[in-house]
Design a protein around this nucleic acid. Structure first.
Lengths: 240, 240
DNA sequence: GCTGATTTATTTGTCAGACATTTATCAAGC
DNA sequence: GCTTGATAAATGTCTGACAAATAAATCAGC
């Protein structure tokens, strides 16, 4: 009556197994936020392994921001409250690598991004605050500058779209979209932006801001749709 | 000896600094998929640290699925091709913890989930394949069973919605949505589902499947909107 | 010459013990 | 009362060693 019916292949890697144990305890709530784990020596005794092995396990968890460590007396490993900032970072790293390593096409990534972004637009139109509009307007100004490198233009584009997402006022949405928006940047960096194409994009950005200011989700949506197809065609000007 | 002027301001936590270095190299493409890293001993010499320190760094990267390791001659650490499966897993873990540790309200998470899901609906209506419809229909059947626990009902609900997302035929969307959908499960598990409420939900699910079958994005969207508001009210029956 | 078993070399996985560094706590001295 | 120093606890790091896995080289046998 053992649980060897579980499909989980018990890792022969002790540090991976220990990390998995502790991770499960955190996810299941048996270890709560800010709770202190036993010291490395105690964990070593508990799992009957050496301290370096325990440390490797803890580093794995630290890499996922599940724990944080503190040195000194009354230090140790603590269950970490995963902040939005940390979650953003991991989300962006994972998304970026997923796209680049699997040869995801520009079209696929672009479609996903604009689909998700359109989902935010109605909420953004309803809740946008002055600072969101100001942030977006500032990026438009930056994008209009002459002599801006393609890379800088892309970075500003990303910042614009992140501000748009943030305007929806839903931190969970912002978190989910962070990956989609940021991971697009490397792909968009491969495009050459002519003066005219920049002007078109900037014009659409302005339409988006205006639509949000007037709380018109329809105008915002149509601008996004146009921006999507324009961006797609930029990448494959001779397609079809 | 030019690099002794390398005052990188993170001398604490050498293993974190080394992991960061290697991670940057992978993201920047200086290390490509399936490329073998130097052995632990070589890395130790290269970074002028001990092998355990290098190992801790490598374990951090392994925790993010950035590398995989192999024992034996011609073994070592290899840059890992991040698979969608692995990315799903990390996304789900991070999202679940983010919601539970930050006390994200049901409404907020629910709003994000349905907003994102509505973004998938038009694509799903266009591209859904028979197996997607079959998978969704199978979950509806499961949900209709009597004596089903609330937890099992929720699990089936999640499976239904993931099938809906997959029907959009965009792996990047599926990846992004995996977190949003799965992370909702713990929150939805806290709801008690009466027979009547289950019937309402199942009815809406059926409407969604029918709409997809008929390739009607409008019907699908309206069903999703209704499902959203119904779910929200289930959680706070006396609100407003 | 070729096949198959054996040895060898390389590399990760694990262990033990030690020292360095950081930090909270507490006691001593002014 | 406040500062200051000693103390203890914990993580961070190092050294050296052995175990285990695995691919390549070697060698015996035909």
């Amino acid at each position: 009556m053992s649980d060897n019916s579980k499909p989980r292949p018990r890792p022969t890697d002790l540090s991976a197994a220990i990390a998995s144990d502790i991770r499960d305890a955190i996810i299941a709530g048996r270890l709560i936020v800010d709770e202190r784990l036993p010291s490395e020596a105690e964990l070593a005794a508990q799992f009957e392994v050496s301290r370096p092995t325990v440390r490797e396990a803890l580093k794995r968890l630290a890499a996922q921001s599940l724990i944080r460590t503190q040195r000194g007396a009354s230090g140790g490993a603590f269950v970490n409250r995963l902040s939005y900032e940390q979650a953003y970072g991991q989300q962006i790293t994972t998304s970026t690598l997923l796209l680049s390593m699997n040869g995801v096409s520009f079209d696929t990534a672009c479609e996903a991004r604009f689909a998700l972004e359109r989902a935010c637009a109605p909420l953004a139109a309803e809740r946008r605050q002055p600072d969101h509009l100001a942030a977006m307007q500032a990026e438009i100004t930056r994008q209009s500058a002459t002599g801006l490198s393609d890379e800088a233009f892309c970075a500003s584009d990303v910042a614009f779209h992140r501000a748009l997402v943030d305007a929806a006022g839903n931190p969970v949405l912002s978190y989910q979209l962070a990956g989609a928006v940021e991971a697009m940047q490397p792909l968009m960096n491969m495009i050459t932006y002519t003066r005219r194409s920049r002007d078109v994009i900037i014009g659409l950005h302005q339409r988006i801001v205006d639509a949000l200011e007037q709380k018109s989700p329809e105008d915002c949506d149509s601008a996004l749709v146009e921006l999507h197809s324009y961006t797609r065609d930029l990448n494959q000007p001779t397609a079809r």
